[in-house]
């Protein structure tokens, strides 16, 4: 973890600054590139420092030195967050956007109940988000500006036989983000809930059934568009909005009999 500061902005070279939790691969890595492309300076967090540093090196080579910086962090280590948040704001020279993208899916069979797996998913997908978005919300509400983005999932819209704790962790994140939005919109802060469908990342490589799979780059582009247009909730790709509208309205007596 370097202690160096990113390049300060000038009137003619102004930057927005984003903190990206969960950036070493998949959607996070693609978002890092997307944001750098659009003139953001980015602080990238994840467990795998080598991968983060490779992404930073690529960004700094392409967009000039001092545009990206990496921090090794395990979101299960919530005690570390307040100090690290302060440190990152210092090194970025401020903060305009925070994106919580950390998430895991630990597969369980339809008859399996594994508390350890479920607690871990809850910890990473939801409790880590609380730890990071709370200080960001407090920071932004004082400044009356800023943007909070949470990467949820279409899986958070219903509880299904295949992934109870994963569904619940994402649903909890969605509800938390909704509450943040209701608190912070009046204070000039934009809160975006992103619900991606299937994205071609390591997370779904073992999934037996997938549909409408898109690349992480396509997902990142969709997320960036929603950030710019200040949407509240966005399905990525948008077709999922229609599909989930149907799924959310399937009555329970049918849903109980479904196998997915």
């Amino acid at each position: 973890m370097s202690n160096s500061r990113l390049t300060s902005q000038t009137p003619l070279k102004s930057y927005r600054r984003a903190l990206l939790v969960g950036a070493s691969s998949g959607i996070g890595a693609a978002l890092a590139h997307q944001l750098a492309e659009k003139g953001y300076q980015v602080a990238l967090l994840g467990r795998r420092l080598e991968m983060l540093e490779a992404i930073c090196a690529e960004i700094n080579q392409k967009h000039g030195q001092g545009q990206a910086i990496a921090f090794a962090h395990d979101v299960e280590d919530t005690e570390q967050v307040p100090a690290l948040f302060g440190q990152i704001v210092k090194q970025l020279g401020g903060l305009d956007t925070i994106i919580y993208n950390a998430g895991i899916l630990l597969p369980v069979t339809v008859t399996e109940f594994d508390t350890e797996k479920d607690l871990q998913m809850t910890q990473i997908n939801y409790l880590g988000a609380l730890a990071w978005l709370n200080p960001a919300a407090a920071y932004f509400q004082t400044l009356k500006t800023g943007q909070i983005v949470g990467i949820g999932s279409v899986a958070g819209d219903r509880g299904r036989v295949g992934a109870p704790a994963y569904n619940a962790s994402k649903a909890a994140l969605h509800t938390y983000l909704e509450a943040l939005r209701n608190r912070l919109t009046r204070r000039g802060v934009h809160v975006l809930t992103v619900k991606p469908g299937f994205v071609a990342t390591a997370m779904i490589k073992d999934s037996p059934r997938t549909l409408m799979v898109i690349s992480p780059e396509a997902a990142a582009a969709g997320i960036y568009r929603a950030m710019q247009s200040h949407q509240q909730t966005v399905y990525v790709p948008f077709q999922w909005a229609l599909l989930m509208q149907v799924i959310r309205h399937i009555p329970s007596f049918i849903f109980r009999r479904l196998s997915f």
Partner: peptide
């Protein structure tokens, strides 16, 4: 050393004279 963080109530967006720069401090 774990640096002690400052209260967020102190945060303010400041500008330069020409209104061409903002910084949070």
């Amino acid at each position: 050393m774990n640096p002690q963080s400052l209260p967020f109530e102190r945060l303010k967006t400041l500008e330069n004279f020409g209104h061409s720069l903002q910084a949070q401090s």
